[in-house]
């Protein structure tokens, strides 16, 4: 009886996932029915009734890749420092600090990014405005750092000590051990951290909306980091408040895409993580 009660509560999460999908889909359906694959074109023109969200999809991916270029080397470096060489006292201080970094609200990042970093880049590079992909990538990279660091740190901490001992006993230095044993052994956990970081970067809304400027255009040339642009998240956040009618339904389509992309990433990251635990716990 008690068992069933708790089971009921636990199924809530599953139920919510279904609900999210269903209700997003109900709201998105009119737009999908009306425009079909035109939704994936790159022309967004409200007066001509064209709602192609390709620029936003491209922007989401572009900005996430840029953020990863910033965050992955730094994040894995910092995680290696924390798990392998930081003395316990330092670690006890740094871990909570990194958690605090994750706790700063995204709207604050966005505000700071737009005002400080945006103006700084504007001055340095003589751009047309304060909004740019470059600024968004830097800030999003910063925002993805904590999650990458803490997950990669966990993954490296999970590598059994006797593997490291075996390497040291063969005359390897600590750094050789880290590079050739710990990191390869933890690689699936680390990749899962990177994927989660990318999910965070793709799903981030407020910061990217303020910094990127939410202009519906694809950067030209495609790697132009000084351009303004849009992402799926920013498109939704900006347009929801100002639109009505069919546009709302288009925005829900964007929402579904976002949800599916990030859900797939979560699942991949999940699988990678169970692989790591099985490798070290199931086997022995």
């Amino acid at each position: 009886m008690v068992h069933m009660t708790f089971f009921g509560i636990a199924t809530f999460s599953v139920l919510i996932i279904f609900f999210i999908f269903i209700f997003l889909f109900i709201e998105a359906y009119p737009a999908i029915e009306m425009f079909g694959t035109d939704l994936l074109s790159s022309e967004w023109n409200v007066s001509r009734n064209k709602f192609g969200i390709f620029p936003a999809i491209y922007g989401s991916v572009f900005v996430a890749i840029g953020a990863l270029i910033v965050a992955v080397p730094l994040g894995i470096g910092a995680a290696t420092y924390l798990s392998e060489i930081a003395p316990n006292r330092v670690r006890m201080v740094l871990k909570p600090l990194i958690e605090l970094l994750a706790g700063i609200p995204s709207i604050v990042y966005g505000f700071i990014g737009a005002i400080l970093l945006g103006r700084f880049l504007y001055d340095t590079f003589g751009m047309r405005g304060v909004n740019s992909f470059l600024a968004a990538m830097l800030i999003l990279g910063m925002m993805a750092l904590p999650i990458i660091i803490s997950m990669a740190d966990d993954a490296m901490k999970a590598v059994p000590k006797d593997l490291k001992d075996a390497s040291l006993a063969l005359g390897a230095t600590k750094w050789q051990t880290t590079r050739k044993v710990t990191i390869p052994a933890a690689i699936s956990g680390i990749s899962s951290a990177v994927i989660m970081g990318m999910g965070r970067a793709i799903g981030e809304t407020m910061a990217v909306m303020l910094i990127l400027g939410s202009v519906m255009r694809t950067p030209v040339p495609f790697f132009n980091v000084f351009s303004t642009g849009n992402t799926l998240t920013a498109l939704i956040a900006i347009q929801m408040g100002e639109s009505h009618g069919i546009i709302i339904n288009v925005l829900f389509t964007a929402g579904i895409m976002l949800f599916v992309i990030v859900a797939i990433m979560s699942i991949i990251s999940d699988i990678l993580q169970t692989r790591t635990t099985e490798k070290f716990e199931g086997k022995r």
Binding site: L163, A166, S167, A169, L170, Q176, P184, A185, K279, R284
Partner: peptide
Amino acid sequence: RRKVGMVFQKPNPFPFSIENNIYYGCQVN
């Protein structure tokens, strides 16, 4: 540690291939 090798209580091979396990010591030294 290069001159004094060690074998541990629990078998602790690296999660690599058999030959890379053997070659590891030569590699790092």
